[in-house]
Write a protein that binds this DNA or RNA. Structure first.
Lengths: 260, 260
DNA sequence: ATCCATTTGTGCGTATGTATG
DNA sequence: CCATACATACGCACAAATGGA
């Protein structure tokens, strides 16, 4: 009825981490050392550390100076709602660059445009036929050279015909949202949809996620008065991102602003 | 250079699930069957299915009629921002009950009040000393009898002396937010902080989470004009919850309202 | 550049325990 | 009580990664 060995070993190691005996960057005992210390086999030691990996606490590194390392807890903050919103302009991509820099990191992004069949989930939000086609502006966002989030923004095909710049694989200087607004498609309202999930293998690869790292899936649908004009799907690496919404009276936040 | 066996097995099974050959509730081949089908040992078959578990795709069930079962993808939607907000009243708990019922499920909650030392993260948001004490109204929220989310709401001790009902382990009929507003502490502004993470063992236990299930951590700080008055920490089981924010012109959403 | 030592990664065989119907 | 499924645990072997001599 008592807990199995591998859980006991995991519990002890977890305690050392949460108590601060082992700090981010520190190495756990090697598997051989765990065998000796706890009197278990190497496989059992691995079962124990596998738990910690799934909890996102540690990461395994092979090799001479490798080992199991307590994970870093870097957090980048992204303000999903900003005062600028009230004027109907949401400078999405620029806003991200600005925020990253403000937090002392170096942003970068890898960017391309594709024409793709629309999956059902996106089609529903855009009010277009599922499996019809749409333009997708896709980017991988990097912080200090490390992948941090993926963002795909979907635009209905007919809108791209009216605004061909959307299909251009170049940066749009004023930002796509501002561009759309200038052409008569402002987005005075958005709906955000947030879920926590485990990454698909593709996402894990693109974000270079260690096993046991969840992602925050963030769908933003932008509405012009006539119709939805875009859906952005952002996948944030869960180990290094945080989303902030401020709702209500802006004057109040002005009073409490410190490091936010 | 080719992928290891257990990944190949996992990839094949994953494909069957995402293609729809195996649907939620279906059983994967047993470990013995995987041995035969892929020509691997039972341990390797387990390594393969362990991957799928960590991806949240399947769940293991021991016993005669058990096996590895493709997971259900039930999602409950919680609207974090509602039109009611504009009047400064945020009927949190009632709102949750209402939303769950509106989606055809049966809500319930387990509730208690504790006085606890304030962890640093909460103390900072409440502008109180770390390790000082505060009242915590804690609840486990259930949907159709299954745990769905945990919510701890922290109130500074001095506020509880002014409003002793906060310490009562009984339901507050009008809701705590409304009560605070009636006593001179409205919350015309909130700040939300969202992260995806793996659950702590405690959270996993309370939410009855299968291994490989992430959580959505949702911190809401409520501000009255003078000061922050509460911090709610909600931990949503990642496999069954989704958060929605609607921002901007409410008139627009009225036009697109269908099943949201 | 090579080799070597160390550490994790992969894979299998086996035995026994536990859960469930 | 039994049959069948997964759960735990150990032992072993060899591969791959990594960094230092």
């Amino acid at each position: 009825m008592t807990a199995p060995k591998y859980r006991l070993v995991a519990a002890e190691l977890r305690k050392r981490i949460t108590r601060g005996d082992l700090r981010p960057g520190d190495r756990l005992p090697t598997e051989r050392e765990l065998e000796a210390e706890f009197g278990v086999s190497r496989n059992t030691a691995r079962d124990a550390t596998a738990l910690l990996i799934n909890e996102g606490l540690v990461e395994r590194v092979a090799g001479r100076t490798g080992g199991m390392v307590v994970r870093e807890v870097l957090t980048l903050t992204y303000h999903a709602s900003r005062a600028e919103m009230t004027d109907g302009l949401w400078p999405e991509s620029d806003a991200w660059f600005g925020e990253v820099r403000a937090q002392g990191y170096e942003p970068a992004q890898d960017f391309r445009v594709e024409i793709m069949a629309v999956p059902a989930e996106i089609a529903e939000r855009l009010s277009v036929e599922a499996d019809s086609h749409a333009a997708v502006r896709r980017c991988v966002r990097l912080i200090n050279g490390r992948p941090s989030s993926l963002q795909d923004t979907w635009y209905p095909m007919d809108l791209c015909e009216l605004i061909p710049e959307l299909l251009s694989p170049k940066d749009i200087p004023q930002g796509t949202t501002r561009l759309l607004a200038e052409r008569g498609w402002p987005q005075p309202a958005v709906e955000d949809d947030l879920t926590a999930a485990m990454p698909t293998p593709d996402e894990a690869r693109l974000l270079a996620l260690p096993p046991g790292t969840p992602v925050l899936r963030f769908l933003r649908t932008g509405f012009s008065p006539q119709r939805p004009v875009r859906v952005s799907v952002t996948v944030f690496a869960g180990n290094m991102n945080r989303l902030i919404y401020t709702l209500g009276d802006p004057a109040i936040f002005a009073k409490f602003r410190d490091g936010t």
